[in-house]
Write a protein that binds this DNA or RNA. Structure first.
Lengths: 232, 232
DNA sequence: CGAATCTTTGAATCCTCTCAAGTCTTGTGG
DNA sequence: CCACAAGACTTGAGAGGATTCAAAGATTCG
């Protein structure tokens, strides 16, 4: 486990175009003025990560924050027994690693893994810290990012951990479809991941997913790519 | 539902002694200097709330924040069907109502109800807003409060919504005991509340609690007050 | 191509729910 | 102060959903 590299696979895309960032409304520092953005330009790098890539690992020293532009990430923690639970799913606009920004020596609290191809910006922790101590008047931007985590946590509880397993899975599929963007097609997480998210077992999940496919609720496009039936 | 008063019962204690606040380490504005604290002194009021009192109600306009000094509060939301789920429990040091501070017209997102006698300070929203726009350099204090909510949300997921119902209940009892302070004695929430927190039904919960009492894990002190067996 | 891993599916078991009736508690009004 | 009604808790019996265990296909990856 500790032998793996942090990123199983990623591609460097050069300096990001923060100023024209497509999701400028919602992404970290999105409402800073252009002067401040130029500071970022020189130190932030934009990368593509493959499905399964690990952005950061629970317990590792916090080097950078990750601002998610496209894709879905699972946030999980593992207890001392080694079993992992998924705390929440994060989509475009979320920033990963915030828990470490309060105390400079805090390691990552959880592991973040790509559930789809990601487009994300990597922000060195020092740059973030300097920017915030120089410009605390932008603190609301940061608080909004924390709020997004809290909303995702509440979603997990209300949508993915309540009611019968069938409903929970349906809610997850809807969330994945929503994060997926225009086409609405998404990669199906593994049975283990769906289990770690819903509290169910891979066996039970496999049974129910088979029902969904047979019942015409879930359609396969190609490979592991699926889409949901349009609800009227 | 909408006919009820906001606070079913509370007692005004006058202006709080913020400077010597017993939980100064962890409560809102705890690390501000004395000059700033004096601003608070003039507008913050300290109250005691009875068990069952509602601090704020989901959907109501956000008038004030509540800084919890002693006691336990349940944070719940109700879906359109009217069924309520408890998202988390908050104890001393938490501040309730933060979700409304980003956008001045946001109503409370959830309902906060006392699960024990509370000692809490009520902070007018305008005072908070002014303090933050005048002194954004203290933003980390606020972020720490958000972090506390997120940790409580994660606790719900990991401790109160995972594993068998018996374990979930045991974890809740431990948390209540932890929040209870020195004596470790706490009020038992209703079967409905324990159900809304664990995802179980009052019947199942009653059965398991009866087992705990018979098994010597849970002891009654008086009335509805209980304490846990000391674990070696 | 073969090993490891994941998915699928069956059968038996277990936990939790539902429904229901009886008991206890609580608050209100006479 | 007591009686009553409403609501909460308790407990039983039966039903159902989900788990466990196991074995047989798929997939993935080197």
């Amino acid at each position: 486990m500790s032998g793996k590299s942090i990123c199983t696979s990623f591609e460097w895309r050069g300096r990001p175009d923060c100023i024209n960032c497509a999701v400028r409304q919602s992404v970290l520092f999105a409402d800073l003025d252009e002067e401040l953005l130029s500071v970022l330009l020189s130190s932030v790098s934009n990368c593509l990560y493959d499905t399964g890539a690990t952005l950061c690992r629970q317990g590792d020293p916090a080097i950078s924050l990750f601002s998610l532009r496209k894709g879905v990430v699972k946030i999980e923690v593992s207890d001392r027994n080694g079993d992992a639970s998924i705390l929440r799913l994060l989509g475009p606009g979320a920033v990963i690693g915030l828990e470490t920004t309060l105390d400079s020596v805090e390691p990552y609290h959880c592991t973040a893994t790509a559930l789809s191809r990601l487009d994300a910006c990597r922000i060195p922790m020092q740059v973030f810290q300097r920017l915030m101590s120089d410009h605390p008047e932008h603190y609301k931007v940061i608080v909004r990012l924390w709020k997004k985590h809290l909303e995702a946590a509440d979603e997990t509880l209300l949508q993915f951990r309540s009611g019968e397993l069938k409903e929970r899975l349906l809610n997850i599929l809807n969330t994945l479809s929503r994060f997926a963007g225009e086409r609405g097609t998404f990669l199906l997480p593994s049975g283990r991941d769906l289990g770690a998210l819903t509290g169910g077992t891979p066996s039970s999940i496999s049974r129910i997913m088979a029902d969904f496919k047979r019942g015409g609720i879930l359609h396969q496009r190609d490979g592991n790519t699926y889409f949901l039936q349009q609800e009227e």
